[in-house]
Design a protein around this nucleic acid. Structure first.
Length: 766
DNA sequence: ATAGCGACGCTTTTT
DNA sequence: GCGTCGCTAT
């Protein structure tokens, strides 16, 4: 691990004022730079921590950054605003949302909730769900919101198509219902914050004045509204620093717009650009392979990673007969590694699609390898958890019809769809919430027969609401809920394994609530629900390896992580790169896959294994697979084709074998792709990054080594006499570790005692 | 009200 | 090939 900041990293830290683009290659110490830059702003530039905003994408990233900033600067760190886009917007909206005619106790809808609304909307508008599948409608709306398009904008933009007009009215009705339920979906949080700023310049000004220094991490993942929001906030002071890597932009499918980072320089006049190209993670073989692969992309910022590390082992590529052989092969290779003394948590197996995990998991189990699958179904998306959470949501926000409808008959209490429909119709006609209608249920026609059941439900809810307004804790409300609904009791009566699992999950939810109560300053249900809505449970998992377990995950979830040993499986055409990207007429689709490949390769520190299969069953059909084109893009200097144990040598695989599987699990014989001259014999020396870019000193190992700006010293000791650029002469009084850095206490002749960071300080030893 | 059955559809995922 | 979802039949 690198100790001090290298010169590029320092340059990024010192460029405090004006627009700054930090192009941070994989493994180049990006987070270090951001946190040190914050420390530098506060400690050396005298910026009030209160005026600093750092935006990340995930809660995990926000929490990590928070921790590292806290470790780096003791006092005042807590007033730096470190947050995700979404939680930042929630915070702003909670404070000002009444200016948009909304109540501050709004609910945040996840995709599941939104789907429910869409279902109702389609029914209400008489739109055929066959012609307009929910998923599609939802994604149309989401895309519109990402572009900051209102229903009216959308309608105008697509005035000629009947279908689009229908979609526009669905969008409009959807928004109307969100408002009626006092709910925002994820896209709304950002959209409405922009809208708030546009319609209330004084509110915008308040935040512009507050956030004089803004930093955005993973900038290549921002969408249009996120870009716009940042632009608005930074408009006044223009101290905007964005950090990202265009080569790691892999989230286009969820709205990320790579042009945000590519055109940042043009967007901001006088923008400074710093490239972090020294990689501290991988061996040069791995890094060179990654460089070569990514160099096949057009329209990227020119950037070549280099390292001081040794060549290391070559990458291996093994082609197995089928996906069973592949999984077995990976498992046995892992067993071998573990046998050689590698820790299981230093190994990761990556794949393009979640479907691939099943077989791998099976073979891990068989080979007795401890593993865990990262990602997968969200804890909060589980039925029993959603049910309980909807109760809580309804308790906080009685306007939330969607939650009411979900739980009014869960557990079954004899309130049927007809009854619910009548209540809904009545509330829709009278512009009131279903909950309010039920509070006064005598006025709702046609529900006489269900009245006693409805009263039972309302008594239950009102009872807990009274508890809460009397100051009960969330966990107490939770316990009361479980008790009066009999939710767990009923599951216990079921007695199945599945029910037991659900009870465990509910217990787990209770643990989370209690943990929240113990850690929050002012625990309240609204904030708890906010966390549940905005925090994925994978955040709580340590992505970088569960102790003693091999990690299995998708290439996407591997972004930002590193492992000594990495397997990338399924290196086949139409799997990786995906068939969809190959069929797409958008040339960027395949480039995005290539970036994903680049991300995968650069996760590996010491050893990279690539595997693929000659045939694989996909969607129930056996497909014959060509090798991934990305394999061709790795020069043979860095990669070795290995034959797997039991390989049948010299066999040629061709189209003639189609329909006749020549290898299966039981026989275990396989084709390893020999006789298929797929790897082109290219003269790679011409494209070697070191010879190609020798004019660029930072791309040349040996130059640009990490040493402090002040001179060739790498360590300070108590008693050293130093000279600081600004403070002049001084003597070091103390050297104390601070995070991954050192804090120096220096007694200066002119200005007295100062605390400074070893890696940032501009001074030299005398 | 609910189990059961057939149709569909299927990359990646955070908030 | 498998899981989900919605509709139907009871």
């Amino acid at each position: 691990m690198q100790y001090l900041l290298n010169d590029r990293q320092q340059e990024a830290c010192f460029a405090t004022d004006g627009p700054l683009l930090i192009l941070a290659g994989a493994g180049s110490g990006k987070t270090r730079v951001i946190t040190h830059r914050i420390a530098y702003l506060i400690e050396e530039c005298g910026v009030n921590p209160y005026n600093i905003l750092a935006i990340t994408f995930t809660n995990k990233a926000a929490r990590e950054m928070r921790e590292r900033v806290d470790n780096l600067i003791g006092f005042g760190a807590e007033s730096v605003w470190v947050s995700t886009f979404h939680s930042m917007c929630v915070r702003i909206l909670r404070k000002h949302v009444e200016k948009l005619g909304r109540a501050s106790a709004f609910t945040i809808y996840d995709t599941d909730d939104s789907k429910g609304i869409i279902r109702d909307v389609l029914k209400y508008l008489g739109m055929d769900p066959k012609l307009y599948p929910e998923r599609l409608v939802l994604s149309v709306i989401s895309k519109a919101k990402e572009q900051y398009m209102s229903p009216d904008d959308y309608e105008k933009e697509h005035a000629t198509s009947y279908r689009d007009q229908q979609l526009a009215s669905a969008y409009r009705e959807y928004q109307k219902r969100l408002a009626a339920n006092n709910a925002f979906d994820f896209d709304d949080l950002i959209y409405q914050t922009i809208f708030l700023f546009e319609t209330n310049p004084d509110v915008l000004l308040e935040y512009q004045e507050r956030f004089r220094y803004i930093m955005v991490d993973e900038y290549q993942d921002t969408n249009f509204t996120q870009f716009k929001l940042v632009e608005m906030l930074a408009r006044k002071y223009r101290n905007i620093c964005v950090v990202g890597d265009d080569d790691q932009s892999i989230y286009k499918f969820r709205g990320a717009d790579i042009t945000n980072i590519l055109s940042f320089e043009n967007q901001y006049e006088g923008c400074k650009v710093v490239k972090l190209e020294q990689n501290y993670r991988s061996t040069s073989n791995i890094l060179n392979a990654a460089n070569h692969v990514i160099s096949h992309n057009q329209g990227r910022k020119d950037k070549t990673l280099w390292t001081e590390q040794e060549e290391g082992e070559k990458i291996t590529y093994t082609r197995y007969g089928n996906e069973y052989d592949e999984a077995t092969g990976v498992a046995s290779e892992i067993s071998k590694l573990i046998g050689e003394g590698q820790a299981a948590d230093e190994i990761a197996v990556l794949y393009r699609t979640n479907a691939q995990s099943r077989l791998l998991e099976e073979k891990m189990l068989l080979a007795n390898i401890p593993y865990r699958i990262y990602g997968g179904q969200n804890f909060y998306a589980r039925k029993e958890i959603k049910d309980i959470v909807c109760y809580l949501k309804l308790l906080v926000n009685p306007s939330d019809n969607e939650s009411l409808k979900r739980i009014i008959n869960v557990p079954k209490r004899g309130i049927g769809a007809t009854t619910v429909g009548k209540v809904e119709d009545f509330s829709l006609e009278n512009g009131m919430s279903m909950y309010d209608a039920l509070l006064d249920m005598d006025i709702v026609p046609g529900i006489d027969r269900a009245k006693s059941k409805l009263s039972e439900f309302m008594d239950l809810m009102e009872g807990i609401r009274t508890m809460i307004s009397d100051g009960a804790f969330a966990s107490e409300a939770f316990d009361k809920l479980i008790e009066t609904t009999g939710y767990v009791e009923l599951l216990q009566a079921e007695g199945t394994e599945e029910a037991k699992g659900r009870i465990e999950n509910i217990d787990e939810l209770r643990n989370k609530i209690v943990t929240y109560e113990q850690s929050a300053e002012q625990p309240n249900l609204t904030e708890l629900l906010e966390e549940i809505a905005l925090v994925a449970d994978t955040d709580e998992e340590d992505a970088e390896g569960a102790p003693g377990r091999v990690t299995l995950m998708t290439l996407h979830s591997a972004k930002g992580l590193e492992f000594p040993n990495v397997f990338i499986t399924g290196m086949e055409e139409r799997l990786f790169p995906s068939g969809m990207s190959m069929d797409s007429d958008d040339p960027d689709a395949i480039e995005e896959e290539r970036r994903l490949c680049y991300v995968g390769i650069t996760r590996a520190m010491k050893k990279l294994y690539l595997t693929g299969a000659s045939q694989r069953m996909i969607h129930g059909i056996t497909n014959f697979c060509e090798e991934s084109e990305f394999l061709d893009e790795i020069p043979k200097d860095y990669i070795v084709r290995k034959s797997a144990p039991g390989a049948r040598m010299g066999r040629t695989m061709g189209k003639e074998t189609e329909g006749k599987p020549y290898s299966n699990e039981k026989h275990g014989f396989a084709d390893y792709g020999y006789g298929r001259p797929k790897m082109k014999d290219t003269d790679y020396s011409k494209t070697n990054p070191y010879t190609k870019n020798s004019a660029n000193p930072s791309a040349n190992p040996g130059f640009g080594k990490a040493f402090p700006m002040g001179g060739d010293t790498t360590a300070y000791a108590v008693g050293d006499t130093v000279k600081h650029l600004k403070f002049g002469k001084g003597v070091i009084k103390a050297v104390t570790p601070a995070g991954s850095d050192q804090e120096l206490t220096v007694e200066f002749e002119r200005v007295g005692e100062k605390k400074l960071f070893a890696s940032l300080v501009k001074m030299k030893k005398l």
